[in-house]
Design a protein around this nucleic acid. Structure first.
Lengths: 362, 362
DNA sequence: GTACCGTATGGAAACGTTTCCAATCTGAAC
DNA sequence: GTTCAGATTGGAAACGTTTCCATACGGTAC
C-alpha cells in the first residue's frame, strides 16, 4: 500500500496556501486569480499529480460527461463501424462512450437502456429491436435524456441517422428487372427483430410488383442455417426457379454464393446474388459482391453530432437519410440459359414462405 | 419543462415518512428495517420512479462501477469481438464498459488511458501499441487501478489474455515446410505498431530457419497498398520465387489472393496463402482460407474475468495462453510445377525488404 | 481623510449517496 | 415495576466538486 488516498483539490489548495474555491477557479480557468496564486496552484497540482474526480464533478454539475450507446452486437461489423464513427466525433469533446450490446434481444434492449440511464448518461445513441414501443426509451424521455437513433427510420420525434432501406431495396429490384430476372427471393436473418430487414423486404417487394416481377419469396433463416453452407444449400435447392437473390446483408450474400456452388449452381450464371451494407471485404473478394453500399461510420458520426447538439439544448433535428450506392459486382448478371424458358409462372413450392403483405414500417 | 428535478432518496424518505438512512437501508437491503417501513419505502420509491444517482454513489463509495477499455479500432472485427466478449462477462455484474479507440496511434493510446483514468474507472482492459513503455499505464499502477491486457504477451506483471503468436506462427512455417515450400514471405500491416505482428514474424522466421527454409521476406504494407489490389499485385510481382505467403491477418490474406489472381497466379497452385485470426467469413468463402484460428471473444472474456478478480483484491493471475488452431483450407497446397526447379536459392531482388534479426518481443 | 469601486479571495452550502453512531423502542426476564 | 438486550431508527458526517456570497484589499476620485 505505498499509495495513500487520492489527492483532492483540497490537498492542492492546502499546498498552494490558498482556499479551495481559488484552487478550483485556477484549475478550471473559471474566475479571477492573481498571477502569483495561479502559479502556486499550478505547481502544487502538478507536484501532487492532481487530477479531478469525475464523481465529484458529476455530482456537483449534474452531468456525467458520458454518452450511452446500445447496439445489437459488435460482432456485426456494421455496428462496430458505427460505434467507431461515434467515437470519432466524441473524442476531444470530453464525452466518453459507455457501450452495451443486446444480442438482438428485445428484452435485453430495454434492460440495457435502463442500466445506462442508471449510470446517469447525458445522452443515448440507440439501435434496438423495437424503438417505437420501448418502455425504456420512454423513461429516457421522462428523464429528459436526449436520444438519437441509428439505422432506424425516424420514430416518435426521435432523430435517426439512417439510410432509406425501402428506397435502397427498390434499387435492387430495378437492377434485377433490368437484367431480365423474374423470379427472386429475399433472404433474411432475424426478420422479426430487425426493422431494417423488414423495410428492405418491403421496398424490394413493392418494386418487384411495380415492375411486374413475381412477388419475391421471403426466406427467414436461422443463425444455424446461415452459417452452415450445407443447410443453406438445401434451402436454396427448393428455390429452383429463382434466378436472383437479394440477401439482407453481405455476410448472408457470401454464404449464399458458397451454398449455391455446393449444389452446382454457378454465380452469377445460374443465380445472381446481391447483398446489403457494402462491407469492405466484399470488394476484395475474388468474385466481388454486388451490394448496396452504405456508410455505417458516417451513421455513427451523424448520430453523435446530432446528440451532441441536443445535449446543448438545441432541439432535435432530423437530418436527411444518408446516401447509399448500388455497387455492382461479379455476382450479378442476366439470368443464364437454364432459366430462359421460365416465363411461365409456376406456384411456389409449399415449403417456401412468401409474404404478400406490405410490411413497410410497422 | 414538465419534469422537475430528479427525485432523490431524500424525496423517497420524506414520502415514506422515514429517515434517509432507513430508506437507503431498505433500497439496498443493507440493514435492518421493519416490514412496515420496508413496504412504505418500496411503495414510495416506485411511486416516485426513483433510481439511484450513479454520481452520488460513486462519490461516496469511491467506485464508479465502470471499466475502461482501449483497443486500436473497432473496425477490426478481431477487436470488436473481443469487446463483445468483455461485455458478455461484465453484463450482470453491475459494471459498465467505457470504450476508447486509438486508431493504432501510440500517442493516442496514452492520451486515451489518461482520459479513462480521469473518469475514475475501476479497472482497465487494454490493447495498445507499446504497453511496455506506456507512461499512462504506469500512472494506472500508481493510482492502484488494476489493468488487464488483451492480445499482448504478458508484460511487467500485467496479466494478459492472449494467444502465443510466436508458437502459432511456427505452426504455419511447419505447414509450409511439410508441403515442400522453400521460399516464403510474411506480409504485414503496421509492423511497427503491432507486437502481435512482430511476434508472428519472429516465430515464423525462427521456424523457417530451424527447418532449413529460406529466411522469409518481410513485407510491410501501407494501408493504401493493402486495400488496392492493383498496388498489392505490383508488390507480389516482385516476389516471383515465393511460393507461400503468410499474411499477418485474414483480411490481408484475402486481399493477397485477389492480387495474385490479378497477375495471373493461381491460388493455391502458384501461390499458397495462409492468414491469421480465423475470422468467420474465411470459412464461408468460395475458396476457404487457410489460417490460424483464434478466439478473440474468449480473449475478451478472459481479460474481463481476470480484471474482475483484481477489482476484488485478488492478486493478478496470469492464465495460460488461449488455444489456437491451424485451420487448413483451399488456399494452401504443395507448390505447383512452375516453381519446382527452384531448389537453387537465388538472392532476393533488392527491392524486397528482408529482416534477418529475431524480433521476438522487444 | 473619506467614500467608493473593482478585483482577489475563501468560507460554506449544495449535489446524492452510504454509514457510523447514538437514540429510541420493544418485549422478556427479574 | 425495573432493567437490559436486541432490534429499529434517524441525525450527521463524509465523499470531491463548483459556485454563491461576503469579506478584504488596493487604489482612485472627491
Amino acid at each position: 500500500m505505498p499509495q495513500k488516498a487520492k489527492t483532492t483539490i483540497k490537498d492542492v489548495a492546502r499546498r498552494a496556501g490558498c482556499g479551495i474555491a481559488t484552487a478550483s477557479r485556477v484549475l478550471n480557468n473559471s474566475g479571477p486569480a492573481s498571477a502569483d496564486v495561479r502559479k502556486r496552484v499550478e505547481k502544487a497540482a502538478s507536484d501532487l499529480g492532481f487530477s479531478f474526480s469525475a464523481a465529484g464533478r458529476a455530482l456537483q454539475s449534474r452531468r456525467s460527461m458520458t454518452i450511452g450507446c446500445l447496439v445489437p452486437s459488435l460482432a456485426n461489423p456494421v455496428f462496430a463501424e458505427a460505434v467507431q464513427g461515434i467515437q470519432e466525433v466524441l473524442s476531444g469533446t470530453g464525452y466518453q462512450l459507455l457501450i452495451s450490446c443486446s444480442n438482438y434481444d428485445g428484452a435485453a434492449d430495454n434492460q440495457a437502456i435502463e442500466t445506462l440511464l442508471t449510470k446517469d448518461v447525458d445522452g443515448l445513441i440507440v439501435t434496438m429491436v423495437a424503438p417505437d414501443r420501448s418502455a425504456a426509451l420512454r423513461l429516457a424521455k421522462t428523464r429528459n435524456v436526449p436520444v438519437s437513433l441509428m439505422f432506424h427510420d425516424p420514430i416518435d420525434g426521435l432523430p435517426s441517422a439512417h439510410v432509406d432501406n425501402f428506397e435502397a431495396a427498390r434499387d435492387v429490384a430495378r437492377q434485377f428487372a433490368k437484367l431480365g430476372h423474374k423470379r427472386t427471393a429475399f433472404l433474411s436473418l432475424r426478420f422479426a427483430s430487425s426493422d431494417r430487414s423488414r423495410n428492405r423486404y418491403a421496398g424490394f417487394h413493392a418494386e418487384c410488383r411495380a415492375l411486374g416481377l413475381c412477388d419475391p419469396a421471403l426466406i427467414e433463416l436461422t443463425e444455424a442455417e446461415a452459417n452452415a453452407p450445407e443447410k443453406l444449400s438445401r434451402i436454396l435447392a427448393q428455390l429452383d426457379s429463382v434466378t436472383a437473390i437479394f440477401a439482407s446483408n453481405d455476410f448472408l450474400a457470401i454464404a449464399v454464393q458458397k451454398a449455391a456452388r455446393l449444389i452446382g449452381w454457378r454465380v452469377p450464371d445460374d443465380l445472381s446474388v446481391v447483398g446489403f451494407d457494402g462491407i469492405e471485404i466484399g470488394r476484395l473478394l475474388d468474385v466481388p459482391l454486388a451490394t448496396i453500399e452504405t456508410a455505417p461510420e458516417a451513421m455513427g458520426r451523424q448520430a453523435a453530432a446530432t446528440l451532441l447538439n441536443m445535449t446543448q439544448g438545441v432541439a432535435a433535428t432530423q437530418m436527411p437519410p444518408l446516401p447509399y450506392h448500388f455497387r455492382t459486382g461479379a455476382t450479378l448478371a442476366r439470368p443464364g440459359p437454364k432459366n430462359h424458358d421460365d416465363d411461365q409462372v409456376a406456384p411456389w413450392p409449399p415449403s417456401v414462405l412468401s409474404l404478400k403483405t406490405d410490411l413497410k414500417q410497422g
